[in-house]
Design a protein around this nucleic acid. Structure first.
Lengths: 124, 124, 124, 124
DNA sequence: GTGGTCTAGACCACT
DNA sequence: GTGGTCTAGACCACC
């Protein structure tokens, strides 16, 4: 399981884990009914506390992204790609709005914002 | 002094204060050598603790946005608009990059990102 | 952590703490990525308020001397010895200039100043 | 009376006044029994509060640098140049010692300190 | 009245 | 346990 954590980013570790698991599902790296590494194993692999992986898994189960089979472990649920994408789009749109709003207060012109944004899109 | 705080936004009050003071300097509402309300008065006006306004002022003094004259109060420093804007642009660009990067992981297409962004720009 | 405070020196406690931590980094007693005592522990050891140690740490983090890993604690950053020394030399030079300037106004001759200074250097 | 104040230097205004009056006595600009400007006039000239000039004069009277004749005002006392110089030398020596001590903690070599000091002396 | 320093607490999120 | 934020209070020097 390839997950990369940044302890000093300020973003909670469990949120970083949750996001990367979702990315892998969206990207097809994790497929329906595939077994997830156990919380203990993942905690060990990442060198973090079991509590942290548990928090991430619990959240994902709660969101319906994973499901748990007692004594067997956690598995990837049937991915509701539409829901995940809709949620993601909503979150992204909101964040963009916040930034645009902030930029406006700093006196950044619309044309300049578009320029910056295009620059980023072209770079990736 | 028009400052609006949102106690439930998750953004520290002193950061909100700092940002709005900077916005007012950028917007020309606060001009060089203009006296700022005293920490006590501002704290009273906003209904928050003296410590919180002091924290905001201290940070801005440290950044060179305000300066203090012992027992007289705090004043607006010669606004280094260029630096403030450069810093702001850098921060905004970084945030945009993060979002675009996140969106990409969620499988959002470039065309769709541009569409969302244009929608926001047209709305404001 | 050996830090000695002089409550009656007029120098703020947090400045004394900051200076001594920098001295220890310069002197190699504190090395890169070494964990600092937690704010609470240090406050306890020194018999001062948590707020005062926090103030010192915050300043040092802001200066890039320390860095913080959320919930893990504060650590010694990659010491930019050059910057620290340059800053120190600048500050020392300025102070020396002020004193020489003051001495001159008191009519102290250059030769005498040199004599005093040599006396001090020979003593240490 | 030529006195120059720096409101934002951090040094109390009354200390700045005291020092400059002493300098003028040492330099022979103010001579024995010469009348000083009244506190009110001086306060007015400097654009500061009467309280501040009073504090400065009171201190100087206390130190024997000035004397007061009721209803007539303040005058320059017989300057005990030796005492003033001795006091000044002591204060300067102490300050130099503090700086040298601080510089040493920052790892500045004796040779380098001497170099800096000579540079300053040659400049003035 | 001003800012500068320091104190003793509290609550929170995260591990 | 850690740091981050916020609070209510105090004392000081200076003006």
């Amino acid at each position: 399981m390839n997950i990369f954590l940044n302890a000093s980013s300020g973003i909670p570790l469990y949120e970083q884990i949750k996001a990367q698991i979702k990315f892998q599902i969206i990207g097809g790296l994790l497929t329906e009914n595939e077994p997830m590494p156990s919380m203990r194993v993942l905690a060990n692999d990442l060198g973090i506390s079991l509590i942290t992986t548990k928090r991430a898994y619990d959240d994902l189960i709660q969101e319906g992204v994973l499901y748990t089979v007692s004594t067997k472990g956690c598995f990837v649920a049937k991915p509701d790609l539409k829901k995940i994408r809709t949620t993601a789009l909503k979150s992204i749109t909101e964040k963009l709005e916040d930034i645009v709003c902030e930029a406006k207060k700093y006196g950044v012109e619309v044309a300049q914002m578009r320029e910056i944004f295009d620059g980023i899109l072209n770079k990736i």
